[in-house]
Simulated scan of single mutants.
Amino acid sequence: MSDLARPRRSVLYMPGAKARALEKARGLPADSLILDLEDAVGPTEKEAARELVVQTLKEGGFGLREVTVRVNGLDTEWGEADIRAIAAMGPDAIVVPKVNAPADLHAVERLMDDAGAPAATKIWAMMETPIGILNAREIAAATPRLACFVMGTNDLVKELGALHTEGRAEVMTSLGWCLLAARAHGLAILDGVYNAYQDEAGNRAACRLGREMGFDGKTLIHPAQLDIANAEFGPSEADVELAKRQVAAFEETRAKGEAVAVVDGKIVENLHVETAKKLIAQAEAIAKMQAG
Rank of each mutant, 00 (worst) to 15 (best):
D3R: 14
R8S: 13
V11K: 06
Y13T: 08
M14G: 02
P15T: 09
G16Q: 07
G16N: 04
G16H: 08
R20F: 05
K24R: 14
R26G: 11
P29N: 06
P29Q: 02
S32R: 02
D36N: 07
D36L: 10
D39F: 13
D39S: 13
A40R: 00
V41F: 00
E45C: 10
K46S: 01
R50Y: 10
V53H: 00
V53Y: 03
V54K: 07
Q55W: 02
Q55F: 03
L57P: 02
L57C: 09
K58P: 00
E59P: 01
F62N: 08
F62T: 08
R65N: 02
V71K: 08
V71A: 14
L74G: 04
T76D: 05
W78M: 13
G79F: 00
E80R: 15
A81S: 08
A87F: 09
M89N: 05
G90V: 12
G90T: 01
P91A: 06
K98H: 15
P102Y: 04
D104H: 13
L105M: 09
V108W: 00
G116S: 14
P118Q: 06
P118G: 15
P118H: 09
A119C: 10
T121E: 09
T121Y: 11
T121A: 15
T129I: 04
I131E: 10
R137S: 13
E138T: 12
I139A: 02
I139L: 07
A147F: 03
C148G: 03
C148R: 05
V150Y: 03
M151S: 07
G152M: 11
G152C: 11
N154C: 14
L163H: 13
G167W: 13
S174Y: 01
G176W: 06
C178H: 04
L179I: 04
L179K: 05
R183E: 05
A184T: 12
H185R: 13
A188E: 07
D191C: 06
A196L: 15
Y197N: 06
R204I: 02
R208S: 03
L209N: 05
D216R: 04
G217I: 02
K218D: 05
K218C: 01
K218W: 08
T219I: 12
D227P: 08
D227C: 01
I228Q: 05
A229N: 03
N230A: 12
A231P: 01
A231I: 01
A231R: 11
F233S: 09
P235H: 09
S236G: 02
Q246T: 04
V247C: 08
V247I: 15
G257M: 04
D264I: 02
E274F: 03
T275H: 13
K277H: 06
L279V: 11
L279S: 06
I280D: 03
E284P: 04
K288D: 05
M289A: 15
G292Y: 15
G292L: 15
